[in-house]
């Protein structure tokens, strides 16, 4: 069975006149299947093509060659444009630039209004979406006075209110402080775990990627690694070659293990690491 979203041999080149400079392919033959209900993290350094890929999932960009199929619909098909965007919502990096209205709840309603949802139904969806990201009490506030993390959660609520089946987040935490990052990631994880929403999280923070079911590593517009966080983060050397960070816990574990200490193949966070080290040191 094919996935909810399938990316088939996609190549993508930006218009040359857009930046003036000569450019190669931003995506260089990507093949990917995203299943329903999955929480996938896409990692890669700046310019690796990860953001370009994110914008293919809801037909903001169209492949130069190859196809992206969302729930049976080709993103190149003009007639299904709105159906695709209704199913796959995209949250962008800069929280300030994606809020349209001057009042939180009115902004969250924006997508539903465009879809022509009846007013009563919009009200219900907006309240629900705001509660899902824990921003209900701010519904009458102006977005200017909120923190980055709060604004980003409002952007997420704006997508949620459209009741999509999948939410794609393009580096939603890159411009936030640690607290804001935590708020946003908590909200996203909750959506996946409690509502079974398909989540594709584009990020360069490995502590965030660790929380996903699946980590997809991209470099030079190609998928290099694709597996569970445990599989991916055990390949410390390979990740470093591709100019990526490894969580400090995983790195420490890897280094000690290479020295012949009896440790698991991979640990993902500080608790796992401390536990493994306890076992090792305590048993001696």
């Amino acid at each position: 069975m094919s996935g909810f979203i399938s990316v088939r041999n996609v190549y993508f080149k930006y218009d040359e006149n857009e930046n003036g400079a000569e450019q190669g392919f931003a995506l260089n033959g990507v093949d990917l299947e995203i299943k329903k209900g999955e929480f996938a993290a896409v990692v890669g350094h700046n310019g690796s093509g990860k953001s370009t890929l994110a914008k293919h999932f809801n037909s903001i960009y169209l492949p130069t060659t190859g196809d992206v199929i969302v729930d049976g619909m080709n993103t190149k098909d003009d007639d299904s444009l709105f159906d695709i965007r209704k199913k796959v919502g995209l949250v962008l990096q800069n929280p300030d630039n994606q809020i349209v209205a001057g009042i939180v709840e009115e902004d969250v309603a924006f997508g539903c209004e465009n879809l022509g949802v009846p007013p009563k139904e919009i009200r219900k969806r907006v309240d629900e979406a705001l509660k899902a990201v824990d921003m209900y009490e701010y519904r009458r506030h102006s977005p200017d006075k909120l923190s980055g993390g709060q604004k980003q959660r409002i952007a997420i609520a704006g997508i949620l209110a459209m009741e999509p089946e999948c939410i794609v987040l393009d580096e939603p935490t890159a411009m936030l402080d640690p607290r804001g990052r935590e708020e946003v990631i908590d909200a996203v994880t909750k959506l996946n775990k409690e509502r079974g929403m398909t989540v594709i999280l584009i990020t360069h923070y490995m502590e965030e990627a660790v929380l996903a079911d699946r980590v997809i590593m991209i470099d030079s517009g190609k998928v290099f690694l694709d597996g569970t966080p445990r599989e991916v983060f055990s390949k410390v050397e390979l990740l470093k070659q591709h100019r990526l960070d490894v969580p400090q816990a995983a790195e420490l574990n890897y280094k000690l293990r290479s020295c012949g200490l009896d440790l698991p193949e991979c640990v993902l966070d500080e608790n796992e690491c401390a536990e493994a080290l306890m076992k090792l040191l305590g048993s001696r």
Binding site: E207, P247, Q248, A249, E251, L252, K255, L256, D269, E270, N271, C273, A274, L277, M278, L281, G282
Partner: peptide, 29 residues
Amino acid sequence: VPQITKIMMLLRQKGIPVDTSVLTVEQGF
């Protein structure tokens, strides 16, 4: 605190005599 420092703190809590002022993976290692 950095994750590496956090690991040392956790070990310390469990009674392992490690230095918790560790700042880098290298030092922790």
